[in-house]
Computed example of a mutant assay.
Amino acid sequence: MEKAQLKEIGQRLRQKRTELNLTREEFAELADISPGFYGQIEVGTTQMSIDTLIKITTSMHLPMEYVLFGTGYSPSDCSPIIELLNNCTEREIKLAERLLKLYLLKVD
């Protein structure tokens, strides 16, 4: 893969991570990779394995085509919460609903 392609991949990942309001360290933890390695991916100085690509795309709820080529994904105009929920499995939505209910009950 060419250096320019690696930088484009890194820019797409950085943009999405920033939209999610996550630090590199926070996202790396979610994806179960080291923060240093994730930082190298974001700046385009290293390539990632298929396993790492799967971890990243699963954690960010992004299609692999978008991460690799910038296609196959169009962010919605709705709130980031709705966008995240739209990309969740039924199980993830149920868990998110339970967490939100617990949070709201605690706040009141």
Rank of each mutant, 00 (worst) to 15 (best):
M1F: 03
E2S: 14
A4P: 05
K7E: 14
E8A: 15
E8T: 08
Q11D: 10
R14L: 11
L20K: 11
N21C: 00
N21L: 01
L22G: 00
R24G: 15
R24K: 14
E26I: 05
A28Y: 02
A28H: 04
E29C: 07
E29Y: 06
L30D: 08
L30T: 05
D32G: 11
S34G: 14
F37T: 11
G39P: 09
Q40C: 07
Q40A: 10
I41E: 07
I41T: 08
V43E: 14
T45S: 15
T46P: 10
Q47W: 07
M48I: 10
I50H: 02
I50Q: 01
I50S: 02
D51R: 08
T52D: 08
T52N: 15
L53S: 05
I54A: 04
I54L: 05
K55I: 00
I56L: 10
I56D: 04
H61D: 12
L62A: 04
M64A: 15
M64L: 04
E65D: 12
V67P: 06
F69H: 09
G70K: 04
T71R: 02
T71I: 15
G72D: 04
Y73V: 09
Y73R: 08
S74H: 10
D77F: 04
C78T: 11
S79A: 01
P80G: 01
I81Q: 09
L84F: 07
L84Y: 11
L85P: 04
C88T: 07
R91Q: 14
E92R: 03
K94E: 14
A96R: 05
A96Y: 09
E97M: 13
L102Q: 11
L102T: 12
L102I: 13
Y103P: 00
Y103F: 03
Y103K: 08
Y103H: 04
V107K: 15
D108Q: 12
D108Y: 03
